[in-house]
Design a protein around this nucleic acid. Structure first.
Length: 849
RNA sequence: GGAUCUGUAGCUCAGUUGGCUAGAGCGCCACAUUCACACUGUGGAGGUCACAGGUUCGAGUCCUGUCAGAUCCACCA
C-alpha cells in the first residue's frame, strides 16, 4: 500500500474506528494474563450535551490506560455511560416551557417526566460521536444511562436497605432553596458571591442589634448573646416582649457560643426557620421555628401586612416601617458578606424549612475514612486522600430530596389519611398504591443525582446481580476531575462500601482543570471555552490526545497549549514517515521473522526499544502519563528516526527494522491509536488488529555492542559539533587504526555529514575530543590556528569538570556514604574527562606549532 | 477561621523514594537541502530552581520561616 507523504488523520480515523467496532474489539477482553483485571468506567458525560476540553482530557488519560492494559494481556473493559444530568437538563427544559407560556405545575408528574424524556431524545448531543472521534475504546454494548432500569432498581434497593436499617429519616430541615427553580440543593451545590449588603441596626427591646435580614423578624423566636458577654448577662434566660412593626411579640434570651461578641453589638436575633446558624441554636435551646417565607420567595401571612411581598420588597418596607416608629438606629452600607446563590440562575438561595429525606451519613463516612486511612484506596495525587478524609470527617447528613421532576423518583409513599405515615415501595409506574386498604401517594420529589451516580461502579459492572462483568468490580481506577472529589468520589466510596463491603475502586486519579491558553478558567460567560471538536478536526485525534496529556501531572490545573498539540501532530506524522521508510526498505515479499541483530546499530536499536517498553510500562502503571509520553516521543523521534533509520540507509537489517517498526507502533498505540493502527493495517505480514496485539517483550541484546554504538554516537556528535563550529562546508574524518571506525565508516560518514572518512598512518588536522575514539578532521594549519581560541575554551571547561569531580572524590564522606554506583559513575566520568583533556592539550600544542 | 496546591528557560510546564554538568514543547540564533518526513535535519544560545535559614558527603527535591499567587471547606447575624 502506498502511503501519502504526510499523515492525514481525517482520511483514516473514521475507517479505523469502524474497523475496531465491527471487529468487536471493544468488548471486554478475556486476556492471557487472567489474574489481573483492568476496568475503568468513564465518568458519564451529559447525554444531551457536547464534550468539552475536560472530557477530552479524561478520555485521553483513561483510554491510554485501558489500551495499555489490554495490550498487556489483562482482561480489560472500558465502560461507557451517559448522564441524564437532572438539574442541567431540567433548567433547559423549563426555559422552553416558559417560552411556551407554561409551567411545570400545569402537568401531572408522570406526564412531565415523559415530556422531558421526549425533549431529551429530541436534543441528543453528540457526545457518543465525539467519544468515538477521540478514539475511546469503550464497550458500547454495555453503555449505562443514568435512568436505566438497573440504575433505578439499584438505587431503590439501596434506599430500602437504608430505610430498613434506620439510616434514612424524614425531617423538617433547613434546605438551600432556589425560589426560581423551586428546588432544594445540597450544601455543596450552592455558589457563594461576595456582596455588599446593608447592615441594619435596630432597637430590639433592651438591646440594639445588627441584621441584614430585618424582613425575617416575624420568624424570630429568640435573641442570643455570647455566654461570657458581661454586658448582657443579666438578660440570659429571660423572656422579653419586643416592640415590632406588626405589634409586640415575645422572644427568649439565650446564650450561645456561636455568637461573636465583637460583631455589631454582640446581640443577634434568632430566626430558626430562615438561617442555618439560628436553626442550630433553636435546636439547642428548644426554640420554635416559624416560617415566614413561602416556596415562591414571597412573605406568607405570618408577615401580616407584608404578606405577598417578595423578600426584597418586604425588607425595604420593614425598614421604612421600623424607621417610622423610631426603631431603626442606623444603616451600615459598607458591610461585605457572602451570599449563597443558585449556580444556574443567580437567585439568592433562601434557607427554607422543608420536609426532606436525609441519610444519616455518619456510619457511612466513618467507614470510608477507615478504608482510606487503611490504604484500601490509593490517590493520585496523594494529597487528595487527605483532603477527602478531612471532608468526610466534617460531613453533615445528606439531603437526598430534590424537587426537580427529571430524575429518579423517591420510592416512598405517604398515607393520604395520615401524613405522618410513610412506607417504602419499589413500584415504578404509579403514583398511588393501596396497601392493607389504605391509599398511599408517592413522594413527588426525586433523588439527588449523586445518590444514584454514587453507585456507578457496581451498577455498571453488574456486580450485585453477579452479571458477566461482575469480575471487573472493584474498578481498577476511578479517573475524573478534581472538582468531583466531594460530590462524586466521596459518595461512591461510602455507598460502595455500604452495598458491597468493598471499596468501589483501587485507585483514584484526579486530573486538574484544562484552563484556556492564558491560564484562566474556561466559562461560557467569558467566552473562552475551548471546543475539542475544533482541535480534533484541525489536528486529528492522536494529536489532540497527546497534546492534552503532554506536560501535565495529576491534580494540577493547566492551560491548554496549542503548541503541544502541534508538536503531537508532527509526532504522529513522524511515526507515519518512519513507517513509510521502513516499509519501502522491507519490500513486498518481506515475511515476518524474529529480529536477528547483527550490527552494533541493531543491538543499540533493540536496547532502546527494550528500554522504552519497560520504562513506559512503569510510568503508565504509576499514572505518570506525561512522562511516559515523553519517553515514547524521544525514543521514536531521536533513537529510531534520527539514529537507527539513518544507520539503516547504509547498513540494512530487515528483521530488526521490521521489529523496530512493530514494537514502536505497539508502545505508541495507547497514545496514538489511529495512526498506529492505520500503519499496522498496511503491514502485509500481519492480519490482526494492533489494538488487540501484545506489549513488546524484552529482546536479548549484546551489551558490549550497544556500548560500542554509543561510543560511535559520541564521535559523530563531536564531529558534527566541530563541523558546525568550523562552518566551512563538509569535512573529512581521519583515523589511524580504529577498527570500529573502519568497519562503520559508511554510516559515520552519513550521520556526521562528512565529505569522507580516510584511514592514514598518522593523524593530522583537528583532533576530536571524543573519549573512546581517536579521530581528526582534516583542516589546514591556518584554520587550526584560527580555531585555537575555541580549543582553549573547551580545555578550560574540561579542566573545570575535572576539578569538580576530583574534589568530590577527595571528599571521604562522599566516597563512604554515597551509593557505590554513584561513586563509580563519578570515577568513570573523571577518566573520560582526563582522556579528553589529554587530547585537547596535544591539539593545542600542534596548533601552536 | 480551617485545609490544600503553586512559584523551575522568553511562554506553557515536566522533574517518584535527595545522587551525573536541572529537562521538554513552542519561541529565538546559525547552518543544511531533491535519496521517509519542511508537520524536515544538524548545531547553538538561554536557568542564583521565589527569598532566607537549617538538615546532609550531596537539596529543585526534606525541615522551618518569609513573600507572591490559586483553589476548596466552614462562617459571616
Amino acid at each position: 500500500m502506498k502511503l501519502s507523504k504526510s499523515y492525514e488523520p481525517q482520511a483514516y480515523e473514521p475507517k479505523i474506528y469502524q474497523l475496531w467496532e465491527s471487529a468487536k474489539a471493544f468488548s471486554a477482553t478475556k486476556g492471557k494474563n487472567a489474574k489481573q483485571h483492568f476496568s475503568i468506567a468513564l465518568p458519564p458525560p451529559n447525554a444531551n450535551g457536547n464534550l468539552h476540553a475536560g472530557h477530552a482530557l479524561t478520555v485521553a488519560i483513561e483510554d491510554v490506560a485501558v489500551r495499555y492494559h489490554r495490550l498487556k494481556g489483562e482482561p480489560t473493559v472500558f465502560l461507557p455511560g451517559a448522564d441524564h444530568a437532572g438539574f442541567e437538563t431540567w433548567v433547559v427544559f423549563e426555559r422552553q416551557l416558559e417560552r411556551e407560556g407554561k409551567s411545570r405545575f400545569d402537568y401531572p408528574r408522570e406526564k412531565l417526566y415523559n415530556m422531558v424524556w421526549d425533549f431529551v431524545a429530541a436534543h441528543r448531543g453528540n457526545m457518543d460521536v465525539q467519544l468515538r472521534q477521540l478514539g475511546a475504546s469503550l464497550d458500547w454494548d454495555n453503555l449505562t444511562f443514568t435512568l436505566d432500569d438497573k440504575v433505578i432498581d439499584t438505587a431503590y434497593q439501596t434506599f430500602q436497605k437504608m430505610w430498613d436499617e434506620g439510616l434514612i429519616y424524614r425531617g423538617k430541615r433547613l434546605v438551600n432553596y432556589c425560589t426560581k427553580h423551586q428546588t432544594g440543593f445540597a450544601d455543596i451545590e450552592v455558589l457563594y458571591e461576595d456582596r455588599t449588603t446593608p447592615l441594619y441596626y435596630m432597637k430590639y427591646g433592651p438591646f440594639t442589634l445588627a441584621t441584614t435580614r430585618p424582613e425575617t423578624k416575624f420568624g424570630d423566636t429568640g435573641v442570643a448573646v455570647h455566654p461570657d458577654d458581661e454586658r448582657y448577662k443579666q438578660f440570659i434566660g429571660k423572656e422579653l416582649t419586643i416592640e415590632g412593626v406588626n405589634g409586640p411579640f415575645k422572644v427568649k434570651v439565650i446564650a450561645d457560643e456561636l455568637v461573636d461578641p465583637s460583631f455589631g453589638t454582640g446581640v443577634v436575633k434568632v430566626t430558626p426557620a430562615h438561617s442555618f446558624d439560628d436553626f442550630e441554636m433553636g435546636e439547642r435551646h428548644g426554640l420554635p421555628s416559624i416560617s415566614v417565607i413561602d416556596l415562591d420567595g414571597k412573605m406568607n401571612n405570618k408577615a401580616g401586612r407584608f404578606a405577598g411581598m417578595t423578600v426584597l420588597e418586604a425588607r425595604q418596607a420593614v425598614v421604612e416601617a421600623l424607621d417610622k416608629i423610631n426603631l431603626l438606629e442606623k444603616i451600615d452600607t459598607h458591610y461585605k458578606n457572602r451570599v449563597g446563590v443558585c449556580y444556574k440562575c443567580g437567585t439568592v438561595i433562601e434557607p427554607l424549612l422543608l420536609d426532606q429525606w436525609f441519610i444519616n451519613v455518619k456510619p457511612l463516612a466513618e467507614r470510608a475514612v477507615k478504608a482510606i486511612e487503611a490504604g484500601e484506596i490509593e490517590f493520585f495525587p496523594t494529597n487528595k486522600g487527605k483532603v477527602l478524609i478531612n471532608y468526610l470527617k466534617n460531613l453533615k447528613d445528606w439531603n437526598i430530596s430534590r424537587q426537580t421532576p427529571w430524575g429518579i423518583s423517591i420510592p416512598a409513599f405517604q398515607n393520604q389519611k395520615n401524613p405522618a405515615e410513610w412506607i417504602f415501595s419499589d413500584v415504578k409506574n404509579t403514583d398511588e398504591i393501596e396497601v392493607n386498604g389504605k391509599i398511599y401517594t408517592r413522594d413527588k420529589d426525586t433523588f439527588d443525582t449523586w445518590f444514584s451516580s454514587g453507585q456507578w461502579p457496581y451498577i455498571t459492572t453488574d456486580y450485585l446481580p453477579n452479571g458477566d462483568l461482575a469480575k471487573f468490580y472493584p474498578l481498577s481506577v476511578m479517573e475524573t476531575g478534581s472538582d468531583l472529589l466531594f460530590p462524586w468520589v466521596s459518595r461512591m466510596i461510602m455507598l460502595g462500601l455500604y452495598r458491597t463491603g468493598r471499596a468501589p475502586f483501587k485507585q483514584v486519579y484526579m486530573h486538574g482543570m484544562v484552563l484556556d491558553e492564558h491560564g484562566h478558567k474556561m466559562s461560557k460567560s467569558k467566552g473562552n471555552v475551548l471546543n475539542p471538536q475544533e482541535i480534533l478536526s484541525e489536528f486529528g485525534s492522536d494529536a489532540t490526545r497527546m497534546g492534552l496529556l503532554a506536560n501535565r501531572s495529576a491534580g494540577v490545573n493547566q492551560a491548554y497549549q496549542p503548541a503541544t498539540v502541534i508538536a503531537a501532530r508532527n509526532f504522529a506524522n513522524k511515526i507515519w514517515n518512519i513507517a513509510r521508510f521502513i516499509e519501502s526498505k522491507l519490500g513486498d515479499e518481506y515475511k515476518n521473522r524474529t529480529p536477528k541483530p547483527l550490527s552494533i546499530a541493531d543491538h543499540w536499536a533493540l536496547s532502546r526499544i527494550n528500554f522504552a517498553s519497560k520504562k513506559i510500562s512503569e510510568l503508565l502503571e504509576a499514572h505518570r502519563y506525561a512522562e511516559a509520553y515523553e519517553i515514547l516521543y524521544h525514543t521514536i523521534w531521536d533513537d529510531v528516526a534520527d539514529w537507527y533509520v539513518e544507520c539503516s540507509k547504509s547498513e540494512l537489517n530487515t528483521s530488526v527494522l521490521a521489529y523496530t517498526l512493530q514494537a514502536m507502533l505497539t508502545i505508541a498505540h495507547p497514545f496514538a491509536p489511529f495512526v498506529t493502527e492505520t500503519i499496522w493495517q498496511t503491514l502485509k505480514w500481519e492480519d490482526g488488529l494492533l489494538m488487540l496485539g501484545s506489549w513488546p517483550e524484552q529482546i536479548k541484546t549484546d551489551k558490549a555492542k550497544v556500548k560500542e554504538f554509543e561510543d560511535v554516537q559520541a564521535l559523530v556528535s563531536e564531529a558534527r559539533f566541530i563541523s558546525a563550529e568550523l562552518g566551512a562546508g563538509k569535512q573529512t574524518l581521519i583515523f589511524t587504526d580504529d577498527v570500529t571506525i573502519l568497519e562503520h565508516q559508511e554510516f559515520i560518514k552519513h550521520l556526521a555529514q562528512l565529505k569522507g572518512v580516510k584511514q592514514m598512518k598518522q593523524g593530522s588536522g583537528l583532533r576530536l575530543a571524543a573519549a573512546k575514539h581517536e579521530a581528526w578532521l582534516e583542516i589546514s594549519p591556518d584554520e587550526l590556528r584560527k580555531h585555537q581560541e575555541k580549543l582553549q575554551e573547551r580545555l578550560q571547561n574540561c579542566l573545570n569538570n575535572i576539578r569538580q569531580l576530583e574534589a568530590r572524590l577527595a571528599n571521604k564522606s562522599y566516597v563512604n556514604n554515597a551509593p557505590e554506583s554513584v561513586v563509580s559513575q563519578t570515577k568513570q566520568q573523571l577518566g573520560e574527562q582526563k582522556t579528553i583533556q589529554a587530547r585537547l592539550e596535544r591539539e593545542l600544542e600542534t596548533s601552536k606549532a
